[in-house]
Computed example of a mutant assay.
Amino acid sequence: MKFHLLLLPLALAACTAERPATPATDTPVPAAAQKTPVAASMVLDAATLGRYHWQLAEASDAYGAHIDALFARDDKPVQLDFADQRLSISNTCNLMNGGYRLDDDKLKIDSLQQTLMACADPKLAELDRAVSSRFEGSPRIRLTGSEEAPRLELTSEAGDKLVFAGEPTAASRYGGEGEQVFMEVAAQTVPCSHPLIPDKQCLQVRERTYRDDGTVAGEPGEWEPLYQEIEGYTHEAGVRNVLRLKRYQVANPPADGSSVAYVLDMVVESEQVAP
């Protein structure tokens, strides 16, 4: 059985606000105070946003109450990624993405798309709605902190405040975009020799090649044990996967480490294999 993703436009404009707007104030706001401050060591632009994975750390509504619905997955916080002028939202039930641009202190987002998957868990179904509704219109965006510990603050038009902590992407950590490769992972691991890890089990892998139209090119090679981890990938026994990876050169690997690193980009194909 194979699983495939299908993108479906997500109409965000139809959503309605959950609470009344914050009462207006009669006190004038100086023009200088209307500008969103940015950390002195960082610049709020596409390049800076693209150097990090942004994981949700805090969320409160206009009245300061914690937004429980945005934390339905304790082990996987909602994550934002900015690349090629597109915003991707993951660790929800369905993946979401759409074009974006920065307009002073506003984040302008095109109509989001999402994968079409049924959310059996009601909390995950609510998570999708709770996330998408906070990106309606043009939320305010603010960058604080430092390059070592950046924070991204988004304030929705309803006054909800979402704070994301930045984690450097693999391209930032390894100093380059890396090489795209496809790797097939067998359903079962195999014992492999490791000087520091007794009884180590390794993934069985082989590289795959695809043409530009997505069709398979050539025959896969022999299965080989992979003595290192694939960042971002968790293997499930009995499931064969084809992965799209980024392969990076490691500048100064440790004595017992590899000179290359593999980072998961996406799962291209997945199949349950009978034992």
Rank of each mutant, 00 (worst) to 15 (best):
K108N: 08
Q113M: 15
V242S: 05
L154T: 07
E224V: 11
T215L: 10
W223R: 05
E222Y: 00
E207A: 11
D110M: 09
D199T: 08
L112N: 06
K108S: 08
D213L: 11
R134I: 00
E179W: 03
T215G: 12
A125I: 02
G137S: 15
E207Q: 14
A125F: 07
G145A: 07
V242R: 01
G166P: 06
E167K: 15
L116G: 09
A130H: 03
C202V: 09
E207I: 07
E177N: 15
V239P: 00
R206D: 06
A186L: 08
A118F: 06
Y174P: 01
Q228Y: 03
T209C: 12
R140C: 06
E136F: 03
R129A: 03
Y248T: 09
R134C: 00
I141K: 01
G137T: 07
T209Y: 06
T155Q: 14
G159T: 02
V205F: 11
Q114L: 05
L196Q: 11
V242D: 08
L116K: 15
A171G: 03
A118T: 14
E157Q: 13
P195S: 09
K161A: 01
N241P: 01
M117F: 06
T234R: 13
T234C: 05
Y233G: 13
T169C: 10
V185S: 01
L152R: 04
S156K: 12
K200Q: 10
A237Y: 04
A149G: 00
Q228A: 10
P195M: 06
L245H: 02
L143R: 07
G178E: 07
D110T: 11
E157M: 15
L162W: 00
A186I: 01
L143Q: 04
R151Y: 08
S172W: 03
A120Q: 08
E179H: 03
H194F: 04
G176P: 07
G176S: 09
T155L: 11
V216E: 11
G178P: 08
T144D: 13
S138D: 00
S111V: 03
V205C: 02
L127R: 05
H235Y: 10
Q180W: 02
E184P: 00
D212R: 14
E236C: 00
L245T: 03
S146D: 11
L196C: 04
F164W: 05
G175T: 14
Q228F: 09
H235L: 06
E148C: 08
